[in-house]
Every structure is written in C-alpha cells, then in structure tokens.
Design a protein around this nucleic acid. Sequence first.
DNA 1: CTGAAAGCGCTTACAG
DNA 2: CTGAAAGCGCTTACAG
Lengths: 359, 359
Amino acid sequence: MISQEKDSGNAATPDVPVRKSRAQPVTLREVAEAAGVSTATVSLVINKKKNARIAEQTRQRVKDAIRQLGYRPNAMAKTLVSGTSRFIGLVADGVATTPFAGQIIHGAQDEAWKHGYALLIANTEGNRDLETDAIAMMLEYKVRGILYSTWFHRPTVVPETLREADFVLVNCFSPEPGAARAVVPDEEQGGKSATEILLRGGHRRIAFINATTPAPARDGRLQGYKDALEAAGIPFDPDLVLEAYPDQEGGYGATEELLKRNVAAVYCYNDRMAMGLYDGLRENGLSIPDDMAVVGFDNQEVIAAHLRPPLSTVSLPHYELGAAGVRMLLGLDEASSDAAVKIMCPAVERASVAVHSPA
Amino acid sequence: MISQEKDSGNAATPDVPVRKSRAQPVTLREVAEAAGVSTATVSLVINKKKNARIAEQTRQRVKDAIRQLGYRPNAMAKTLVSGTSRFIGLVADGVATTPFAGQIIHGAQDEAWKHGYALLIANTEGNRDLETDAIAMMLEYKVRGILYSTWFHRPTVVPETLREADFVLVNCFSPEPGAARAVVPDEEQGGKSATEILLRGGHRRIAFINATTPAPARDGRLQGYKDALEAAGIPFDPDLVLEAYPDQEGGYGATEELLKRNVAAVYCYNDRMAMGLYDGLRENGLSIPDDMAVVGFDNQEVIAAHLRPPLSTVSLPHYELGAAGVRMLLGLDEASSDAAVKIMCPAVERASVAVHSPA
DNA sequence: CTGAAAGCGCTTACAG
DNA sequence: CTGAAAGCGCTTACAG
C-alpha cells in the first residue's frame, strides 16, 4: 500500500530517475543541476555548437544527465528565443473529402522535415470562417510561412490575412498575375500526354469527353489534346469533343453520344468519368481496349489501377506540388514572378489501351 | 526615389502604422507603448479577464492600438508562460495512400478546435523512424497529448516514446488489455448491420466473402454476420463463407466460387471487393440487385455511391473516431479501462439490394 | 483602476 | 573551458 499524497517538492523523494513521468517536464536547469554545470553548458552540448569547447568529460556528464532524466527540450522556449519558429502551416480545403490532399500533405511534410520544419495543418473543408481562424492560429504560432492549398486546381482569392505571412499557393493561383507565388499541375502537358497514349496506340480518331464544369483543368486538358493532335498532324475536329459532368454518372451518361461519333479511342477528363464510361461501354457489349481504347486523368487512388482493365491515365502530381510548395516557400526553388510554376503530370500506361491497336 | 537603408530604431520613421509588414512581428510591449499603458493592461484586455477592471476608455485605446499595429499575440510565449500548450498531436500512418485518414483528421480537428486546440499532424506512412521523430517533435512542442492512428483497424505495438505523453490509440489498439486507451470501429455491429440489409431485402441464404488477410475486421465482420443470421433464426452455413484478397481483383476472382453457392445475396468484406465482384457478375450476365443483391463495407469515397447500381454498405466511422479520440484524450469521454471503446458503423442503404426482393 | 516586477525555459554574447 | 546575466514575448500575483 502506497500512501498517495502530492509530494510537490518533497525533499524525501528518492533520487531514482523517474522517467516518463508526465507530471512536469524536466527542464534544462534540472539537467544542469544534475550534471553540476551551468545551463549555458547544457545548452551548448545539446546544440552541438562548434566553437564551444567543452571538456569531453563534462560533455559526457551532461549527456548522462539528459538520458537519466529523460529530458526533452521545450521547443516553445527555443523558438521564443530564436524568434523564428520551425513550423510551416498548411491550410487545405479538402483533406476529408478527397484522397488528393493526402498526397499534398505527404509531399509537403517530407520536404519540410528535410529542412527541420514541422507541419501545422488545418483542414477547412472550404469553410471561410474556419480558414480565417486557421490562418490566425498559424500566424500566432509564428509559422515560417503558409502553404494554402486546394483539392482541385482552381483560381482563388487570396485571403487578406494570408498576406501577413510568407505564403505559397498550392494547386491554386491568384487570377491577378504576380499577386502570389503559386505551384500548379501542368494541365496542358497532362492533356497532351494523355492523348499521346492513344496516338501511340495507333489511334488517329480520338474523342475527348471534357468536363462541363469550368476549371483550369477543363481548358488546359482540352488545349493539351489539341496540341497533341496538331503535333501528330491530325486536324482538330470539334465534333469529337463531348462534355459531361466529371464523375462516374457523367461518364456513363456520355456513352451514347460517344458511340455516335464512331471512334475507337477516347480520352476522358478524369478517371471517375472513365469508370462510368466503362460501365456504359460494357452495357453496349463493347470491350476495352479492343472496341474502345480509354484513357483517363488523375491516376486516382482506389480506382485507376483497379478497373477492368486497369486504366491508362495521367498522374496528378500532388506529392510534388506539396514538396515544391515548401521549397518555394523556403526560397530553395525560384518562383516565376509572373505566373504559377507548373509541375508535370506523368503518363501512367495500363491495359485500357492496346499497344498496337488497329486504327 | 526612396533611399533603402536599414532604419533599425530610426527615430525619424513616420508613425503611420505599417500593417502587414512581415519584418518583425509587433509585440505586446509595442502595443502598450502605443496605447500609453503597461503591458499588463494590454494582456488583461486581450484575454478579457473578468476580474480585471479596466476603464472602458483605456480598453478602447488598447483595442485601437492593437488594430492599428496589426498585433498578433505570440502563441509560443503564451504557452511558455502557461506551461501547457494548445496542441494535440496526430500521428497517422496513411494520410497519403488512403482516403480514410482524411476523415480521422477532420473529426479530430473539429473536436480539437472546439476546445481551443490546434492539430499538429505527422504523416509517417508506416515508417518507424519517421514515427519516432514525429513523436519526439510533438513532445518537444509539449503537446497536450497524442492521437496515434492507423489507416486500417489493427492491433499495434505502442511506441516506447509515446508513453511519455498522454495518448489515445485511434483505429488501433494494444494487444495487452488495459495497456492503452483506444477507440476503434465496432466491426461486429457493422457486420451485423450489413447482413441485416440483406435480411431486410428478404434474403435468407446469404454468402459472405471474407478477407484472406488477418485483421480484427476479418473476425469481427464474420462474427457480425453470424450474429445477424442467428438473430434471424437462420443456421450458419460455413459453406457460404468464401475468402478472397480484399480488393477489386479479389472480389472479381471470387465470382466463380460465389456462383457455385447458388445464392442471390452476398455481403462483401469491403467495397473494393464488391466493386470487383460487380464486374464478375456482369460478365456472367447477372444483374444487380435482381440476380444478386450485394452489400459492401467501408462506404468508401469515390466508389460506393458511384457504382452501378450504387452500393449498399456500412460506413466506417472515421470522422467519429477522430473526434472521440480527442474527447477521450481531453478526458471528456470516459475510456473503458479494459478494452477499446467501439464506435458504431452505420448502415448506408442504396440500390444494390432491392427492397423486397424475392427470397 | 493600473503599473512594476518576477518568471516561464531556453540561447547567446560576454567575462573570466 | 565554463558560468553569470540578459533577454525572447508573454502572464500573473502583488502593490498602490
């Protein structure tokens, strides 16, 4: 039976190191006392200062004390002194509802950690009030800077308070050129790559099911499609461009129109549309890729690699967007002053396009 | 032409408020000077201390100064003083690769913010070294506590350093009972609910395609299936339980075996399997739900609601897991001392089961 | 009703 | 080679 009493400052407590006690964190001063040195000395050995010449013996005593007491430096105090925190804020509007934000987080964190920064994340789900609060919070924690990211590539109005910090837009951009550093996916190149997959498959008559929803992706992916055709010497035929809502139901619904076009190859605005189109094609007794070669866009988790047959597509470089955002924020990458920096969307070829399908 | 020189402490600088300058943050002291009061007074009005009686006039002067200077309190200094930080750490192993973690983050953040805490997130993608670093970082920021979460429900070994903090396991648990507070989904109830959807559809002969991969979900979902059958007075037939790898390819591959069982209703271990099974059934000329009623598990984003027909399933309560984890950490919810707290998995009924299908 | 002072846990010149 | 002291930006008793 142990008598439970608060022994605050009880001198009778045994001097056995009580590790992992969650009561009051061990402080630098306590380490110094335990090692019989000044706090300055402890600080010096912890931070491995080059020009601090500490006797090896002293150094060892300090290290032992640190281990004994289970000392953890107080990062708050540390940043208070240094003036500059080791946080990078990441405001995201769709961590919960899409699988895309995860990759941005991953890329941003890997890059941030590489440079000694931790990520302070706020998920706003598009709520402006939450967003304001999130930015205020980050500002109060004196973050090194803020990455403001959106789950789909779009123009955005930079929140006023964001300008109080160093910031970079990730997967979005300000309509006014030069108003903000930004990094976005290269939709044109992506659209071109997607179309080229079909061209390489021997197709020359290629339909494109674009989105009905206005977005940089809608314009860019169409432009890429045109670029690819032009480079291949194929005249652009507006009749081969359809439009549908960019999800499974939209893709499915576009089947009928597509079949009227008498094509054997189609490039869909995104993978979800392609998934719906798969169902539509099957219902019409058509097989992929023999009757219809299909290419998507996004390389969306859970879907793209697991359709039957697996879908050829183009990858949205979310990881790289996050990483590039951090590098730009830290001044490691140059930001072009006038426009957003574009990150390449690599092609991912799978079985939905036959290698040398008959044209 | 403006001469650009560092005017540090230059008394000649105009007293026009330079807002949004990113140089040196405005401090409490500067606000106090501008308002002509002491720092204590400023602190008092900022924190709206009840028993501090400040003249309304003074209060107003302080507020004006704050606005004028664009003052932001330094959260680092604040927490240094108070001793207790306003951070809750969230260690997650799969933010990048699955859509599930997003919901945990969302739930945790909403609940944390409600209580004035910000989330410090670290994505480890299962890397143990990263994990150790992440926990150390959180410890150094003196987080109020740590949520240790996994992207799929599983037993886990609690990392040593995690014990230095107050912590709660989210979506995972320690094999040794009583070793750690934990919150997990109720797989048994979920499996029962899934089966009940089919029972309500009039089915009595129901197959279950379980996962081949050992996991609490595998045992729990099977148990729930048995429970539902028993409650309905239907004898359990082991021959109706198949197994497959829990993804689309696994579900597709199980089609043949399933059809041998001569059933018109099947409950799949997860939505991905159901998605693959859809393809298999279609290839066999069977229609859903008329020839085969299908139920999944997970209510996975992007998939479940968008299959043809939309899939009846059971929702994994990730949002609630995150929120409950925070509440448990803050001591707002009781943690049962012996086992993990179980969160309900609600049924989501869609068109893959006909309402009164013929048995 | 408001100010002066101590202190939170560190780091960084500066002495010695 | 090491210690005493000041200071980072706040808050909190304590005076007055």
